[in-house]
Write a protein that binds this DNA or RNA. Structure first.
Lengths: 226, 226
DNA sequence: CGCATCGTTGATCAATTTCAATGCCGGTGG
DNA sequence: CCACCGGCATTGAAATTGATCAACGATGCG
């Protein structure tokens, strides 16, 4: 399982450990592999790096003292995670599936040198993040449960859907409670909405983690009101 | 009214217009005055500048096609607004009270030169913004109406409260519907919660826009569950 | 095979929205 | 100067959504 995911084509993949400094290429970037459940960083950790997801899926979460939890984002390949506040990570981040991330020294965020191109890319990513989070505000505060689940599925289909015979195959590696904590619902409500869309013929479930979106347009129509 | 707000102490204050390029100081920053209701920028506008609020209060909003609106933030002095996505603003921004902002060329976000200090500050502000928005996720998705309103008031008291004889005087220049759209509630619920806290002796209203927080600790206790 | 965890469904309950009416206040024009 | 008007705030009653509580089913792992 572990080996299946790794490919020899990737340079600098270290088993679960960042490359030590001496081995770094000039930009000091490195690859890191994460198994399911492994943490990339915790809330409060000193932020040494920011990461780009190469493969897999990560979960960014915040927990309140009283235990209430908010999933801030699910990070997919191409996403950048680990933007610090001050010098500290302000979310937990762990792997939902076996994953590979590319790490950049956190200082690449602060200063142009030695790699202005990277600096620029990270800055853009941070701005993009702000915009994406504003979208999620709409999701959280002005959508019904059905709209939230419909949006969630269309987004997933758009980003990681695989066209197949009878629609779009979508892997749902996160658990129902993660979806709930991401959307501001309960697991029960998530289930009920999924069942509802299933009975309405918009999706089909092979297993709880494997769905086929059979009517993407219908799903999209339910993602927005009116 | 207009004149009352302006002070001769501020350099470069232009009446509702950015200074033209020829007049710019080396960093190309300038001051701009906004009257109540005036827009600083609209969603979709080319993002020429980012702004730091000097005085007053701004409202950042997003509107969906169907008319549902999300207040993304209320910006107070010291806050930076106008972070673009790509090269475009992705919120509307207008003044809730007469305000003054300082504008920086948007390129200060992208490149270190000519002012690395400013670039760094803006970058930090963007990262801070990401963190603040994650806090707001918690607010939107896992707090009750009472907790939301209590949090809102304590934040307001902390940021713009004026100690006075019987507590902390807090101006509430935004309308109830703005508060509602910020917190993901309806105006009616906002009113009811305010009334509830009023009857509980935590706050007092001089007018709908002027409150006195008489029991900040009590309010704080209701901002978090348990 | 049995246990633990996760997912699903049903019934009830509570919180918030919705709908409706009234109050309040500032501005405007007679 | 005062009465009216319009927008905003507030309150009440009914309706609805989603949460909670409880049980059961499925799945995977030791």
């Amino acid at each position: 399982m572990y080996l299946k995911l790794a490919t020899t084509a990737e340079p600098h993949i270290e088993p679960n450990q960042p490359t030590n400094d001496a081995d770094c290429n000039p930009d000091r970037r490195f690859y890191q592999r994460l198994n399911v459940g492994q943490h990339l960083f915790h809330e409060g950790d000193e932020a040494e790096h920011v990461y780009e997801v190469e493969r897999g899926m990560l979960r960014l979460a915040r927990v309140m003292e009283n235990g209430r939890r908010q999933i801030v984002a699910f990070a997919l390949p191409g996403d950048i995670v680990g933007f610090p506040e001050g010098d500290v990570h302000h979310t937990d981040c762990d792997a939902i599936t076996d994953s590979v991330v590319e790490g950049y020294r956190r200082t690449a965020l602060d200063v142009c040198n030695p790699n202005p191109e990277l600096h620029r890319r990270l800055t853009r990513a941070a701005l993009h993040e702000i915009c994406a989070m504003q979208d999620h505000f709409m999701m959280l505060s002005s959508k019904s449960a059905a709209e939230k689940i419909a949006s969630f599925f269309t987004t997933l289909a758009d980003r990681i859907g695989q066209p197949c015979a009878d629609g779009i195959h979508v892997d749902i590696p996160m658990r129902r409670v993660d979806i709930a904590d991401f959307l501001g619902l309960t697991t029960e409500t998530v289930c009920r909405m999924i069942t509802k869309f299933r009975k309405a013929g918009l999706i089909r479930l092979e297993t709880a983690q494997k769905a086929i979106v059979t009517d993407l347009a219908g799903l999209r129509a339910r993602a927005e009101p009116e």
